[in-house]
Design a protein around this nucleic acid. Structure first.
Lengths: 345, 345
DNA sequence: CTGAAAGCGCTTACAG
DNA sequence: CTGAAAGCGCTTACAG
C-alpha cells in the first residue's frame, strides 16, 4: 500500500518536488509559481488523491499536529464529555488527540507523559495528579504548549481552564441554609488537590458567613483508590455517625453517585430523610427520583477554552498566561425540597 | 528541545549508528555484537535518556504503533468504558489510540477514516455507521488490520467482536412473559443496523416461541439524529397510544434513559404502572428508584477481545477471520417486579 | 563482529 | 519563476 508521494506528482507534472511542495502548501503566490503550473499540480494532486505523509512532514518540521489529553478517567461522565468536545474542537484546527487516564495515580501520569513525549505531541492538556509538579515544571521550562484542566498546581504558574470551585461550594452551602437545613455534612476526597480544597473552602466560607456550624465531624474524606463498595460503605458508616444529619453535599460526581447508593442501602429516602447535593451534573442526577440538585460545570465552555488557550500557545508562542475560571451553575432539583423554611436574618 | 539521537550515542560510544540501532532494537545477539559494546551502548542510552524518534522510525518502517478507534459516541457510557479498556490493553502492546465519534453519521465516519489513514494508523477498531460498506471493503482489500465492534456489516466478512444481541433480546421477552406481562412494547432506533435488528429479532422470536402477541403497533423506532427532547416526546406519545401497555423494552442505553424521562413526564411510575427493561447497564439503571432491569454487555471482555483480535492481525497477518460473540447478561432489578405471576405452560 | 550508505517522504535555505 | 540538494532520525541490505 504505498501511497502516492510528492515525487509522483512532480514526475507527472514535469516539475520538481520543490515546486509541488510549495504549491501544495499554499506558497504558490509567495514563491511566485506560475498560475499554470500551480493549477496543474493542484489538479493532479486531487486526481491522485495525494495525502501528505504526516510522518515525513513531522520529521522535517518537528510538528505532529497531535495533542495529548490526560484525564483522570475517560469513563467518568465529566471527562468523557469534555474529551468529546476537545476532540471536535481540535479537529477544526487539524489536530488529533491522544488521550489517557491517570486514575489520579502519579505513576500512571508519568507514564502517560513519557509516551506523549515519545510520540512528539505538539501540546498538552493535562489533568494533573497529586505530586506531578516536577513533570509540569519540566514541560513548562521546555516551553511546551500546555494547559491544565479541572485543577492546577498552586506552586507553578501555568495556563489552566477551571470551573469556579469556590463559588460552587459557596452556593451549595448558602442554598441549603436558606432552605432551612442546618446539620449539613460534606463528603470529599482525601486528595489535597486544589479543586477539592476550593469546593470545601467555598462551602465553609458560606457556612461561616451565615453563622452556621460546621464542626470537623461533619466532614468526611474518601480515598480515590478504594473500590466502589468500600467507598459506599464508608459513606454509610459516616452518615450513621450523625443521627440528626439533614443534608449532605458530595464534592464530586462519583461520590454523589456512591452517596445515593449509600443512602439507599441505609433505607433512607433522599429529599425526605436527607437532602442531597452533588458537584457535577449527570443523567443519573437529572432522572433520579427524586431528581438530584447539583453544581453543573459548563462542559462545552471548558472544552472550547482548553483548545482556544492551547491553540494560542501553539501558534503565537504567546507567553502571557491564560488562566480561565468559568462559573458553576447550581441546578435546583427535588432532592432538597423537604422543608422550605426561611431562615431568620 | 532537540532530543538526543542515535548518532549522539554512536559518537559517545565510538561506534556507528548501525551498531547502536542493532543493540537498541534487541538484535545484538542476532547481529553478533560483542557483549562489551552492547553493554556500553545500553548504559549510555539509559544515561542520556534516549527516546527513539517515533516519526523517523515510522517513516522508515511504515509502522506508527498507533491504532484508530472509531466509536459512535465517546460520551456514551458504553463506548467510553470500552474505550478506556481498549486504551489500557493497547498500551500493554506499546500501541497508542487515536479516537473519534461518528454520531452514527456516515460523513463523519468517512472523515475520521480519512484522518486515520492520513495519520497512518497501523490498525482500526471501527463501530461502523450505516452505509459504510464501501470504506470497510476498501480497508479490507488493502489488508489493513481491522476489527469491527458493536455491530458488523452482514455483506462483508470481517473480524468483529460483538455481544449476542439476539440472545439479549430473547431473554428480555422471555423474562417479561414469565413474570406475567403480556402487552409488551419495544422501542428501538430507526437504524437498520445489525445489532438493533438482532435485538428485535431475538425479542420477537421469544414472543413467538411463547405464543405471545407482538403487533406492529407495539414497536416504535426513534431516529438517532433528533434531540433528546424530541426523542423523549416521541416516546411519550408512543406510550400514550397504547393504553393497556404493561411493559416496555428499550433496545439501547440512551433510549432507556430517554424512556425513564418520558415515563416520569407522563406521571407514571416504573415498576407500578409499567415495567421497564433497557439494553446496556448504566449507573442510572442500577441506582434508579426503582432500579432498572437491563441486559448488560461484558465490557471488559469486549475490549480485551478487540485488542486481542487486532494484535493477531498486526503480528501474524493472520488471515483467518475472528468473529467473537460474547454472551449478554440479563440483570434482574426492581423495574419489572409489579406482578409476579406464573404463566401457564 | 562492525560500518558506510541508501532511503523512508517531506520542507526549505540557497542558488540561479 | 523554478530546481538541486541537504537533512529530519531512524532501519536495514550489503559488504567486509
Amino acid at each position: 500500500m504505498k501511497g502516492i508521494s510528492i515525487k509522483d506528482i512532480a514526475k507527472q507534472a514535469g516539475v520538481s518536488p520543490t515546486t509541488v511542495s510549495f504549491v501544495l502548501n499554499g506558497k504558490a503566490k509567495e514563491k511566485r509559481i506560475s498560475e499554470q503550473v500551480s493549477k496543474k499540480i493542484l489538479k493532479l494532486a486531487a486526481k491522485l488523491k495525494y495525502k501528505p505523509n504526516q510522518l515525513a512532514r513531522g520529521l522535517r518540521t518537528g510538528k505532529t499536529k497531535t495533542i495529548g489529553l490526560i484525564v483522570e478517567d475517560i469513563a467518568n461522565n465529566f471527562f468523557a464529555n469534555v474529551a468529546k468536545i476537545v476532540e471536535e474542537e481540535a479537529d477544526k484546527f487539524g489536530y488529533k488527540v491522544l488521550y489517557g487516564s491517570t486514575e489520579d495515580n502519579l505513576a500512571k501520569a508519568k507514564g502517560l507523559l513519557e509516551v506523549l513525549e515519545y510520540r512528539q505531541v505538539d501540546g498538552y492538556i493535562i489533568t494533573p495528579t497529586p505530586n506531578l509538579d516536577k513533570e509540569i515544571e519540566m514541560l513548562k521550562n521546555a516551553r511546551k504548549p500546555m494547559v491544565l484542566m479541572d485543577r492546577y498546581l498552586p506552586q507553578i504558574p501555568t495556563n489552566y481552564v477551571m470551573v469556579d470551585n469556590f463559588q460552587g461550594g459557596y452556593d451549595v452551602a448558602e442554598y441549603l441554609l436558606k432552605l432551612g437545613y442546618s446539620k449539613i455534612a460534606l463528603v470529599t476526597t482525601t486528595s489535597e488537590q486544589i479543586q477539592m480544597k476550593e469546593r470545601l473552602n467555598g462551602f465553609t466560607a458560606a457556612m461561616k458567613a451565615h453563622q452556621a456550624n460546621f464542626p470537623r465531624k461533619m466532614l468526611k474524606k474518601i480515598p480515590f483508590s478504594g473500590t466502589r463498595e468500600q467507598a459506599v460503605d464508608q459513606i454509610s458508616d459516616f452518615i450513621k455517625t450523625i443521627p440528626d444529619l439533614d443534608a449532605i453535599f458530595f464534592a464530586t460526581n462519583y461520590l454523589g453517585v456512591y452517596g445515593i447508593e449509600s443512602i439507599k442501602q441505609l433505607g433512607m429516602t433522599i429529599g425526605e430523610d436527607i437532602a442531597l447535593v452533588s458537584f457535577d451534573d449527570h443523567d443519573l442526577f437529572r432522572l433520579h427520583t427524586p431528581s438530584i440538585t447539583c453544581v453543573a460545570q459548563p462542559i462545552h465552555d471548558i472544552a472550547r477554552n482548553l483548545i482556544q488557550v492551547l491553540m494560542n500557545e501553539l501558534n503565537d508562542n504567546n507567553h502571557q498566561l491564560n488562566q480561565v475560571v468559568l462559573p458553576a451553575t447550581l441546578i435546583k432539583r427535588e432532592s432538597c425540597s423537604k422543608r422550605v423554611k426561611v431562615v431568620a436574618g
